[in-house]
Design a protein around this nucleic acid. Structure first.
Lengths: 293, 293
DNA sequence: GTGGTTCTGAAACAATATCTTCAATGTTGG
DNA sequence: CCAACATTGAAGATATTGTTTCAGAACCAC
């Protein structure tokens, strides 16, 4: 891209183009600016810096880096953009990826996923949600997590997070041959979280039947058509999963999952907080992770 | 109209209400402001005065007359209005889970996730997206998938789907001790898909550096702050991941992931279709799955 | 580790923006 | 026409914003 071209870009575009070459503080600032664009950039440099959690020199430097003479010049550009936007009533049609045509898969996908989320939440009974959270937050119960062929990633995600919040969380192996062993360890009052979306797996059904007989509580995450496991489940969450693709989408299920995790975290904050602090220290010690943000 | 009511009006409304009581110079200023509202009022008082053909004291006086403490306060009000106008009506003031109160975590979470999706897509360059799809659809390249502590679930999800579409897809083990062995098998032109969100993992960075030297193409999925791996990546996708929780959200990353998968599927439909049919037959034979829908 | 490099924000400084004062000008009512 | 009052903007005073400098912190390559 030539210098000349650069002149005609919006501030947002310039930020995106150069995002890779921005430093840590600058990225923080860039994100804050894009977050509430363009209004966040219309106040004083001091206000912007404060809201972004960086110093004013950082703001001034980035303005230069983006090709402006200084912050006021950047602001002027923002106002110019705004003027153009506002006086142009065509900016009606909502497009998610603004630079891509409506037919681009990103936009089609976004459209459908949002609709899925909307439908799922409409159908979801919040009391049932809260009940699930309560069960999962109950430290007197052991939690077992199990998933199917596709959904094992979700199960594993859920397991990873639950484990950070509380003890007594176990992941059941994927290989169904070994399931009987796991069943042996489940006792009345335990919770088994099952993930099963279509093509529902026969083994999971048998497994559910087996453990239901032992008096465990089954929490089921399934799709809008409902896994047959629902028959044995105390609580079932149905997510919409259809998208323009040969496969189903796990985005909404992931959403519900994270909501549950966040809610459980709220319920059990003292213990969770403690565990996390401890965990941090352990990771720190093993130097597995590098502090970055 | 009481003083209290006056507080909630827009600047434009205040001007209109009091227009009669404005003096000649003030009316001139008022008209100029309404003319190009609200952009004209967002610059400096000097600029506004000049453009309106009045003096700066006139502007300052009118700001007071309209009930503001001074010109900066009026400006602040303008920015506030703008923010309310501009922010996407879809994500604002809509309750997602209709039966639950706004403050229910489901609604709060939905609000933030939608916003994250919107921001992510806005920042995403569709051409870059298409380029990634093209690379992943290229059957002459071997694909390796690797994830971090939290993101390995995503990596695994991605791997599972890619594997259904094409051969030569390999998942790199989580244990970083064994990575050198994997590196040995990577050759120029191969693609390595890396998942790394904050707390960025040091091992991954070293790994990326190592393989970049071998001439592989790195496709990176990271968060809005950007993993340091981006330095070595040919393509980077930045997702917004902040939610009201102690942990970050993977929903948007999952969304992008699925979009990529869907797009690759489009690109390679003949082969994918064939593989899937064959796969179905295999599963049928092992009776692992029960046909339901 | 270590030495060089880059990044960052506190503080000093410079440049503007905003407000206040006040004299000139206009306006009104007699 | 004139006095009393209202309006206006030039100019200076003040407050705030924006920029530069610089030393310490963080990072990186060895």
């Amino acid at each position: 891209m030539t210098k000349q071209d650069q002149q005609n870009l919006t501030v947002a575009q310039r930020i995106q183009n150069r995002f890779d070459s921005l430093t840590r503080a600058e990225r923080q600032l860039a994100n804050a600016m894009l977050d509430n664009y363009p209004v966040s950039g219309l106040g004083s440099i001091t206000a912007l810096a404060e809201n972004s959690g960086v110093s004013t020199p950082t703001v001034a430097r980035m303005a230069r880096k983006l090709g402006f003479g200084g912050f006021p010049e950047l602001q002027k550009a923002l106002r110019g953009e705004l003027e153009a936007t506002i006086s142009n009533p065509i900016s009606k049609h909502e497009r998610w990826a603004e630079n891509a045509p409506d037919t681009h898969i990103l936009n089609q996908f976004a459209e459908k996923v949002i609709e899925n989320l909307r439908q799922t939440l409409k159908q979801q009974d919040p009391d049932d949600f809260d009940a699930i959270v309560k069960v999962l937050a109950d430290r007197s119960r052991v939690i077992h997590v199990v998933g199917g062929r596709i959904s094992h990633s979700l199960a594993s995600y859920f397991y990873t997070h639950m484990q950070m919040m509380r003890g007594d969380v176990l992941q059941v192996e994927r290989n169904s041959n070994s399931w009987p062993h796991y069943v042996l360890n489940m006792k009345q009052g335990d919770v088994v979280v099952i993930f099963d979306v279509r093509r529902y797996e026969h083994d999971l059904l048998r497994f559910a039947k087996m453990i239901a007989a032992r008096g465990v509580e089954i929490v089921l995450f399934t799709d809008q058509w409902g896994s047959p496991v629902a028959k044995f489940a105390s609580h079932t969450i149905y997510s919409r999963i259809e998208v323009p693709s040969a496969w189903d989408s796990s985005v909404v299920t992931m959403f519900i999952l994270e909501s549950v995790i966040a809610a459980v975290q709220n319920e059990t904050w003292e213990e969770t907080n403690e565990r996390m602090t401890e965990l941090e220290e352990l990771f720190e010690k093993t130097k597995l992770f590098k502090k970055f943000v």
